[in-house]
Every structure is written in structure tokens, then in C-alpha cells.
Simulated assay, not measured.
Amino acid sequence: MTEPTSLPAGAPAAAGAPAGPDLAALLRASARGDEVAFAQLYDATAARVHGLALRVVRDPAQAEEVTQEAFLDVWRTAARFDADRGSALSWLLTVTHRKAVDRVRSAEASSRRDTSYHQQNQPIDHDSTAEAATASMEARRVRGALASLTPVQREAVELAYFGGYTHTEVASMLQLPVGTAKTRIRDGLIRLRDAMGVGQ
């Protein structure tokens, strides 16, 4: 399957694009190599993907690269999308978030390599080491706890907390009443708290 020609990262949806396209259908068509469907998917979601990438990496040039990488990954792996596990937009934003986090980690690793000589000649800050280890363990606990949520709870929580969207925006993206979106987020957070043993 040939890859589509590169699309400008972070571009807004094309003028005159159909309102409310069926993203799941476009993903399925993209999985079959339909470049027109993929272009429509890009037009419908590029602004949100770029916005999420920018919130994570906090650098416009890096965000454009992450957006491009995310859509390339979507093109290559569209067949993995499973509508039973969440919406197409949630899947797309999850791919984007993973790419953005990878980019941040890569930049941090590069920075650590650049300063490693100086760090090796400094006294070990045991408190900082302990804090870093604690943060790493907490991240693993959160990932494990997320896996315990139902698909609809995980989708809503990821959009609200990884995507940084408001309850109203989450409701709009998932085509739900605001009250339902709030309930899913609340129930998901309660389940996360229980899974992590917070307050016990």
C-alpha cells in the first residue's frame, strides 16, 4: 500500500468539508488504502490533533512534526481501529498523545545525554532520585489503573485529562449529552481512585 503524499501538519479543516463526517467509516476506508478518505479524515481532525500535540510538546515546530508522524501512523495502522473499544476520534487522539509523549521523552533523553558529563561530576541528589523513582512508579500505577476502566470510561477520561478537553468538548466529540460525558468521567475517576488504592 503506497503512502499518501505529505499533508501540511496542523492545517485547519478544509473549507467546505462535509459537516460531521463519519470518522470511523473514513478510518475503515483508509485501512483499505483509500487516500481520498484519508484526506477527508485529515481535514476533519488535523486541527484537534495538532492542538493536542502542541499542548504536550509545547513547541509549534515539534507539534507540526508530531502531527505529521501521528497521521502517518494512522495511515499505516488504520486497520487496528476497533469501534467496539472507543470512538475513532479517541483512537486518533490516543495515537497522537503517544507520539507526542515519545517526542518529549526523546527530547529529554537527548538533553540528559548533552549534560551527562556535568551531571556525573555533581553530587548525587538522593532526594531528586527518589522523587523520579516515585514518579515513574506512579505513572505505571496510573497506566495499570486506566486498563481497569470500561472502554467508554477510559475514552472519556483520556480525552478530558490527556487531551485537555472540557466536559462540554468531550461531550461534543463523543456525541453525548454533557451530563452523560460528566458521568463517564466522574465514574472513571472513581474507578481509577479505587484501582490505585487512593485514600486507603
Rank of each mutant, 00 (worst) to 15 (best):
D34F: 07
S90W: 06
L159Q: 08
A11D: 06
T150Y: 03
Q68L: 07
H97Q: 04
L72E: 11
D114S: 13
G86F: 00
S106R: 09
H126M: 10
Y165L: 09
R193W: 11
V170H: 00
W75C: 04
L189Q: 02
M1H: 10
Q40V: 12
A53C: 03
L89D: 02
V104S: 03
T166C: 07
E64M: 05
D127G: 09
M196A: 05
Y42A: 08
K182R: 10
R32Y: 03
H50D: 01
S87K: 02
R80W: 04
A139G: 04
M1Q: 11
A171Y: 05
A107V: 13
A15I: 12
A14D: 08
E64H: 09
G33N: 05
D82T: 10
V36K: 12
E169R: 15
Y165Q: 14
A109P: 11
K182Q: 11
E169C: 07
R98I: 09
R113C: 15
S6K: 06
A24T: 15
V74D: 07
A107S: 15
L27I: 06
R32M: 13
G188I: 00
R48Y: 01
T129Q: 07
A135M: 14
A147C: 02
S116C: 15
V95E: 13
T150L: 03
L26T: 02
Y165M: 11
A133F: 10
E155C: 00
P21A: 04
A53V: 00
R103A: 13
A17E: 14
L72R: 10
Q122C: 10
K99D: 04
L93R: 00
G20M: 15
A132I: 05
E69W: 01
A17P: 09
G164N: 05
S87Y: 01
A9Y: 06
L52D: 00
A83W: 00
F71R: 01
A11Y: 08
A31K: 01
I190S: 12
Y117T: 02
S110T: 13
E108V: 10
R85Y: 06
V74N: 07
T67K: 05
R76Y: 06
R76V: 10
I124H: 12
G188C: 07
L176H: 01
P4L: 09
A70Y: 05
A25Y: 02
G51K: 08
D22A: 12
R143P: 06
